[in-house]
Simulated assay, not measured.
Amino acid sequence: MSTPDSGEAASHRLIAALGQQIRVTVRRGEGVPLVLCNGIGAAFEVLDPLVTALDPRTTVVRFDVPGTGGSPDSPLPYGFPYLAAVLGDLLSRLGFTGQVDILGLSWGGALAQQFAFQYPRRCRALILVSTGTGALMVPGRPRILLKMLTPRRFLDHGYAARIAGDLYGGTARHDAARVARLFDRQLMAGSRIGYLHQLLAGSIWTSLFALPLIRQPTLILAGTDDPIIPIANARIMARLLPHPTLHLHPGGHVDLITNARELAPVIDTFRADLEFVDEP
């Protein structure tokens, strides 16, 4: 594996990648880096609880997609193949030219799948959390999906708390204020045009026919109380992927963050097992 220059990366810096300015932060550690792809509209600060709960020796790369958090808007709408190329260029500019593990949460799961398919030699393993196969998937209830059409929950934290239980399920049903506190971590909420670009990218993309071609070991984490991504989607992906590990938990859509202490060890164990397999 190619190793980046020693020393910690500067937090919240902007890096030019294929015509985009991408805000990125890196926690330097050891081993194969873990790259985190966030959900729609969310800045990378929302993932703080997960990063804290992961093995502290793990190198973790986080970034804001164009128009989200501190990354400026893309001048044009984009698709996931282009965004995967942006991510590949970003990693190269950070010095990560070898293999990485890609974790995708919700919308970010589409980007993670696309990267694994598009750059098989650069992706050692795939971790798919609360996600599905894109436009061709088992949808959530319409009244739930309607709440996803605008970024209001990122801008109005009182509104986020009111809808959290119905929208996210799991631990959010019992402590909706936790979701509002989670979004308080966002230093910058991004733009409406950025959110629209993300919606458009997801509306024209599917991995349904490509999943059998993704050869990487894949951990699928899914909550049985997820109103946005019904559990059937995790089972479909597990049937289509050649090397899946399916882990179901009783939580909801964002429990990876709100219940990170319980779910981060599942990720650590999956990745540790890969290290064991890789040893001669």
Rank of each mutant, 00 (worst) to 15 (best):
Q198L: 12
A16T: 00
G70H: 01
A172D: 06
R215S: 14
F117K: 00
R215P: 04
F270Q: 09
F115Q: 03
Q118M: 02
N38Y: 02
K147G: 12
P75S: 02
R271A: 07
H157C: 07
R57G: 06
K147A: 12
R57V: 10
L256C: 11
R62Y: 04
P244D: 06
Q216P: 04
A232P: 14
L91F: 01
A180P: 04
S106K: 05
P250R: 01
S11V: 09
Q114M: 06
L128I: 13
G88V: 13
R93I: 09
A135W: 02
L149P: 02
I228W: 01
T3C: 11
W205T: 03
H197S: 07
D64I: 06
A172Y: 01
S11M: 15
H157K: 05
S6G: 12
D55Y: 10
G108M: 11
A9R: 01
R23P: 14
C123D: 15
E45W: 01
G169W: 10
L263Y: 09
R181D: 07
T245L: 11
A161T: 10
E262V: 11
A16Y: 08
A161W: 05
L182S: 04
A164K: 08
L149R: 11
Y78H: 15
S106M: 15
L187E: 11
R23L: 02
H249P: 15
T218A: 04
G41H: 06
A164G: 00
P230K: 03
M188D: 04
L36H: 02
G169E: 15
E275W: 13
P56M: 00
L47G: 05
P244C: 00
A180S: 08
I267C: 08
R162P: 05
L211Y: 07
L90I: 08
L199Q: 13
A85T: 15
N38C: 02
H249S: 00
S207I: 06
Y168V: 01
H12C: 03
R152L: 10
L145S: 13
P56I: 04
P75H: 08
P250I: 04
T97I: 02
A232D: 12
P77I: 05
V86G: 10
A112K: 05
I102V: 11
V254H: 02
I163R: 06
T245I: 15
P72W: 00
F270L: 12
G31H: 03
D55M: 02
G39N: 04
L146E: 10
L76A: 15
T68Q: 07
L18W: 02
F44R: 03
Y195P: 13
R93V: 08
A161C: 13
D184M: 12
T52N: 08
F63Q: 00
V35S: 03
N233V: 04
A9S: 02
F276E: 13
P72G: 07
L18N: 03
A210V: 11
V129T: 15
G132M: 01
R121T: 13
R57W: 05
G190R: 00
I40Y: 08
P139I: 05
T218D: 11
A116H: 12
Y82D: 09
V277P: 09
P217N: 03
R173W: 12
P33K: 03
S6E: 14
